[in-house]
């Protein structure tokens, strides 16, 4: 029986590869279960043997919200269009933390899976992609937290405790939230592919990433609104794709007061697309050396 099966099996040819290597989607699809298993593993082990467990997922954005609200909202007294500052920062923190967690995890993913890379074959793209997916669970919890906030304000109005501030409510733009979320994800994947592949060859990357992420947070509108940026620098500022990511996300949550700056948004999207395509190409064309040099 098995001989009949094997003769039907397509012949595979292993030989030194030359030229540009594209993405083998069929193979990726064949390994989809491994992809989910690795993400599942990442999620499982992240909170094993922690006392607070999943609570950390809520505590992290919550403390950031408090800090940002106090520093930017109260002390620096930045403009908020009359919307509560906690909501403004939370709407930005969700995509930001998703991005920074995903980039942090996927950049290190290859070298921390060195034992897999040198002992077993599967499409290497699965490694950074699955560790990106593994960080998404935290973001979903963050989104829940966001809705808790929104409903908190709405109930406050129901019972006449507070007046509903600008931007709080369920806007039609909410429908677009998954799109902006996916956009943030693509930006993270683009960075993750580049950094993880570079990290195999140059361990310097490991030191650059935390530093780079810290800078990136300051030049992205996480603690403030991008409308704080002077009009004539706006396009230059938007080269950073996270500007578009965060503005878009904020708009989908807080409504029309928070329209993104569309020319800048398109510029950012182009940047993401560029790094995504080159990242995949770079990854695919260096991966054949991974097992030898990792």
């Amino acid at each position: 029986m098995s001989s009949a099966e094997t003769t039907e099996m397509p012949e595979r040819i292993i030989r030194p590869k030359t030229g540009l290597i594209g993405v083998n989607f069929r193979e990726l699809w064949r390994f989809r279960e491994l992809f989910f298993f690795l993400s599942w593993r990442d999620v499982l082990i992240r909170y094993k043997q922690t006392a607070l467990g999943v609570l950390w997922v809520i505590l992290q954005p919550l403390t950031s919200v408090v800090v940002f609200t106090v520093i930017f909202g109260k002390m620096a007294n930045l403009d908020s269009h009359g919307t509560p500052y906690p909501l403004i920062t939370l709407a930005a923190l969700i995509p930001w933390q998703m991005f920074s967690n995903a980039v942090g995890a996927s950049s290190l993913s290859l070298i921390s899976s060195a034992n897999l890379v040198t002992k077993i074959y599967f499409p290497r793209l699965i490694i950074p992609l699955s560790s990106t997916l593994g960080t998404l669970v935290d973001s979903l919890v963050g989104i829940l937290l966001l809705f808790v906030f929104i409903f908190g304000y709405l109930f406050g109005r129901e019972f006449g405790l507070i007046e509903v501030p600008v931007g709080v409510g369920l806007h039609w733009q909410l429908v677009l939230m998954p799109i902006f979320f996916a956009y943030a994800l693509l930006a993270a994947i683009a960075c993750g592919l580049w950094f993880s592949a570079l990290n195999v060859q140059y361990r310097d990357v490991k030191y650059v990433i935390p530093f780079m992420l810290r800078i990136a947070m300051l030049v992205s509108p996480v603690g403030y609104l991008s409308s704080e940026i002077p009009e004539n620098y706006r396009l230059l500022y938007s080269i950073n794709p996270l500007v578009g990511v965060i503005d878009g996300f904020r708009w989908s949550v807080l409504g029309s007061e928070f329209q993104p700056y569309w020319p800048g948004f398109c510029l950012g999207a182009t940047v993401v697309l560029f790094f995504l395509v080159t990242g995949v190409m770079f990854f695919r064309n260096t991966e054949r050396k991974f097992a030898d040099i990792i």
């Binding site: 099966e5 012949e11 040819i13 034992n115 897999l116 002992k119 074959y121 050396k289």
Partner: peptide, 28 residues
Amino acid sequence: VLSEITEPSTGEIRVRGRIASLLEVGTG
């Protein structure tokens, strides 16, 4: 090389069927 973990520098291998490689117990 047979299990495609690393690429050969020369030559060619033709394989018919799924290869499972066990280069270590408890990988992963």
